[in-house]
Nucleic acid binder design. Structure first.
Lengths: 201, 201
DNA sequence: GTCTATATGTTGATAGAC
DNA sequence: GTCTATCAACATATAGAC
């Protein structure tokens, strides 16, 4: 896990707000420094370029979100329970961290190829965990999924999409949204016992 | 519907590419003009500010996407068929117009309050059409939905989310993705006939 | 690790000729 | 409707003092 000093953290939090409000291209290092109550020159001591700052923001968000998803995975063994827990917690995390999550999702194009590759490698981890949860349910027959790869993607998207529209100032029913997404997730994957037929051995 | 001259269209298409690649804040009117093989001064004859250009891009995309959704709605009457058609065509539209769709989704914060309000009003139309398709299915009992409002939102999100990751250079199975989303949509809303029980009158 | 001051280039937008 | 030339403001990033 990446460690950050207190001084870095101050700029990191300021950068999240500025990038979220102005977009990466519209954000200025002056304004980020001002939000952190520092001069622009002080910022450059900790992050040599504006792009390095964006990378730090994206990396922290991806590490935290993965930790959240993995913890939910580990907390249950029953496939349906586990899926609900994963989608629900993942959604809540995105609502609790809308600004940094939004930056990490929408400003990736501004990263250098090397930095972008590192973030995409984090994303493959997300996908791996979700696929594993999916396959466990398929194995015991409670899930019935045509395309595991695409479905894992869509299950993660339920949580990620929240950052596109969620506004903590307008909408506060975080738990209700999380439950809605968990309900949809289960409907998306559950196997339907057919009528007039015994379950296969 | 908004009409555009040929000269405007030239700048509009250039703006889509530039905004999509650089983000609104990172895009420059010079580069947009260069993409259109015109000088920056020529651009300002047609669009008085960079923000007006962004608005024109967003408005065109929203009008086209709504037209696509409405056409799919009108093409069928069976609720499940219709839902499949809507989600599938809506997804295809977003893949066929990834760049302008992405700009319209991710750069809204740069619009003036007045312009943003106009775009959000388009969005309420999307939602209204999808809700109507949903309620028709609930009425005849083929759909079973807890929260019509949130579910309509999630069904639209299936198509919209595509612009977050779809890359026509890497992924070309547009029809497969559309079908996957349509399958998920049906699973998200269909009512499950219970075993050992007659359907309610 | 922070500051003030500044170098160097770029930006949105305009003036005025054709 | 397009151009070249330009303005005034602002951008990222650095130099050097404390």
């Amino acid at each position: 896990m990446t460690t950050v000093t207190n001084a870095q953290l101050r700029f990191l939090d300021a950068a999240v707000d500025e990038f979220a409000e102005q977009g990466y291209g519209g954000a200025t290092t002056r304004d980020i420094a001002a939000r952190a109550h520092r001069s622009a020159a002080a910022l450059y001591v900790h992050y040599p370029t504006k792009e390095d700052l964006l990378f730090a923001v994206c990396e922290r968000a991806h590490e935290q979100a993965l930790e959240c998803l993995q913890a939910a995975y580990d907390s249950r063994t029953d496939p349906e329970d586990r899926l609900r827990e994963m989608v629900s917690h993942f959604s809540v995390w995105h609502m609790d961290h809308v600004r940094s999550a939004r930056v990490s999702q929408y400003e990736l194009r501004a990263l250098s190829p090397n930095h972008r590759a590192q973030i995409l490698s984090h994303r493959r981890e997300f996908h791996r965990v979700m696929r594993s949860a999916l396959q466990a349910g398929v194995r015991v027959g409670v899930f019935d999924v045509d395309d595991v790869h695409r479905t894992a993607h869509s299950l993660l998207a339920l949580g990620v999409d929240v950052v596109r529209w969620f506004d903590p100032d307008l909408e506060s029913d975080v738990a209700g949204i999380a439950r809605h997404n968990a309900d949809l997730a289960v409907r998306m994957v559950r196997s339907i016992p057919r009528e007039h037929e015994e379950p296969a051995l």
